[in-house]
Amino acid sequence: MIAAVGQQPDWGDVALLDHVTSTLQTMPPLVTRAECDRLGQAVARVAQGGGFLLQGGDCAERFCESGATEVRAKLAQLYGLAEVIHSATGGVVVPLGRLAGQYGKPRSAPYERIADGTVVPSYRGDAVNSPATDRRARHPDPTRLLRAHECAERVLRVVRDSWAGRSPLERAYVSHEALLLDYERPLVRGDYAASAHSVWIGDRTRQPDGQHVAFARSVANTIGVKIGPVISPAQAVRLSRLLNPDGADGRLFFIVRLGSTRVRSLLPEMVEEVSRRGRPVVWLCDPMHGNTMRIGAGPKTRLMEAILDEIVAFVRIMRAHRRHPAGLHLEMTPEDVTECTTTPKPFRPPPELPHYRTACDPRLNAAQAAEVVERFVALL
């Protein structure tokens, strides 16, 4: 039996939502089957130890940043970091952007308190509502799903322009969390999700009997699953069997987000059990999500020391179990933001974050993302 679907907005106007989903069903696919297959072939090569996967981009894409200038800057960062890995290892590196669809966000609570003490519905990404801090702007609006399609189409034009002169193994592809099923389901074409080349299931929606897993099982794209600290090795095995029943290389990747304090105690048994009883998966390290915290009463941040430490542990555990440490999943931006920070010194005031611009979670700036990738390749 399929469980109730979680992390979905209360759209309110059912008739309007029906009109939007019917309209999405008639719209052209955002990606093609051939493009998705080429990504699958590239990830299969990574799975066989012949390369790496670098997945990265904004925590929450903004509609207002879907212009060519902004997208080219994000692609330049992604391609540049992929080249760092390639130069150090000689292997193929597949750039996979959090692009052209990362417009929906899961939240731990339906409401949040803003600076003046007012309680408003939580921001769930531009495909649902606005981050503006008034209640009307925070009301879920299904017509935003149509805007998401429009913006994704605009972003993908720039992505495809970047393919000129590149082999299919070196091109940037696009991915996002397949969170909003009222967006994903109408965009299925045949047996492919036509919303992105690859989609992933978040740590909050990866229940084996849930509708997000059922959706992922129904499509032929390369699929990712976020693996957080509450998952058991047996549950990870079950997910690998559900989502990759044929055991195909390149079909499934696990995005490990355990946190630096727990990765060493939790990951070894999980890798061992999936390797022994599960189906083939590509192992990626997400050193961001398990290392989110607040310093004092300030905004959420992520400590660089914890991010780097989780990468070290991930690579060493993979090597110890003779598995391929296949890559990284990073929330990052080419902008000069101050959202992630170093560990504050004892008896010092919390560090200031003067350029804190994210719509949701903290991102690495360009220099920090480069430091993270350089640490990864040094371990390889």
Score class of each variant (00 low, 15 high):
Thr301Arg: 00
Arg276Glu: 12
Met332Tyr: 01
Arg348Val: 09
Glu331Val: 03
Arg302Pro: 11
Val315Asn: 00
Ile317Glu: 12
Val281Pro: 07
Arg294Lys: 01
Pro346Thr: 01
Glu331Asn: 03
Ala297Gly: 13
Cys340His: 00
Gly247Arg: 01
Thr333Ala: 12
His289Cys: 03
Ser265Cys: 12
Ile317Arg: 08
Ile311Tyr: 02
Leu243Ile: 07
Val315Arg: 01
Arg276Leu: 15
Gly298Pro: 09
Gly278Val: 10
Leu330Arg: 00
Gly250Glu: 06
Ala248Phe: 11
Ile311Arg: 01
Arg277Pro: 13
Ile317Leu: 11
Pro351Arg: 00
Arg316Gly: 10
Phe254Gly: 04
Thr341Pro: 03
Val263Ser: 04
His324Cys: 08
Leu267Lys: 02
Met288Ala: 05
Arg264Asn: 13
Arg276Lys: 10
Leu252Arg: 02
Glu339Val: 01
Met318Thr: 03
Arg241Tyr: 15
Glu273Tyr: 10
Val337Leu: 03
Arg323Trp: 07
Pro299Glu: 14
Arg294Cys: 15
Gly327Asn: 11
Leu330Glu: 06
Pro280Ser: 13
Met293Cys: 15
His324Arg: 05
Pro351Asp: 04
Cys340Ala: 03
Pro344His: 00
Phe347Ser: 07
Met332Ser: 10
Ala313Cys: 09
Leu258Val: 07
Leu258Arg: 00
Arg294Trp: 14
Pro325Lys: 02
Phe347Lys: 02
Arg262Ile: 11
Asp286Thr: 04
Val281Glu: 09
Thr292Trp: 12
Ala326Ser: 05
Val263Lys: 01
Phe253Met: 05
Leu328Lys: 00
Thr261Tyr: 12
Glu273Phe: 13
Glu273Asp: 04
Met293Ser: 14
Asp336Ile: 08
Pro344Thr: 06
Leu266Ile: 02
Val271Phe: 08
Pro245Glu: 11
Thr342Gln: 12
Pro334Gly: 06
Gly278Cys: 07
Arg262Lys: 11
Val281Ser: 07
Met318Ile: 05
Arg316Pro: 09
Thr338Tyr: 13
Arg279Phe: 12
Asn291His: 10
Asp249Lys: 09
Arg348Leu: 13
Arg262His: 14
Val337His: 05
Gly259Leu: 13
Cys285Ala: 09
Pro349Glu: 06
Ala313Asn: 03
Asn244Ile: 14
Leu267Ser: 11
Pro351Ala: 04
Val256Trp: 06
Ala248His: 03
Ala297Met: 08
Val281Gln: 02
Thr292Pro: 07
Lys345Asn: 11
Ala320Ser: 06
Ser265Asp: 15
His329Thr: 04
Pro346Tyr: 12
Val256Thr: 03
Lys300Leu: 10
Thr341Glu: 05
Thr292Tyr: 09
Ala306Glu: 11
Glu331His: 03
Leu303Tyr: 06
Gly290Pro: 08
Glu269Pro: 06
Glu331Ile: 05
Thr341His: 04
Arg262Asn: 12
Arg257His: 05
Phe314Gly: 04
Gly247Met: 14
Phe253Leu: 06
Trp283Ser: 01
Arg319Phe: 14
Met288Asn: 00
Glu335Asp: 14
Leu303Lys: 00
Ser240Trp: 09
Asp309Arg: 01
Leu308Met: 03
Ile295His: 08
Leu242Glu: 06
Thr261Asn: 13
Met332Gln: 07
Leu284Asp: 00
Thr343Trp: 07
Leu258Thr: 08
Leu284Ser: 00
Arg238Thr: 06
Pro280Phe: 13
Arg302Phe: 14
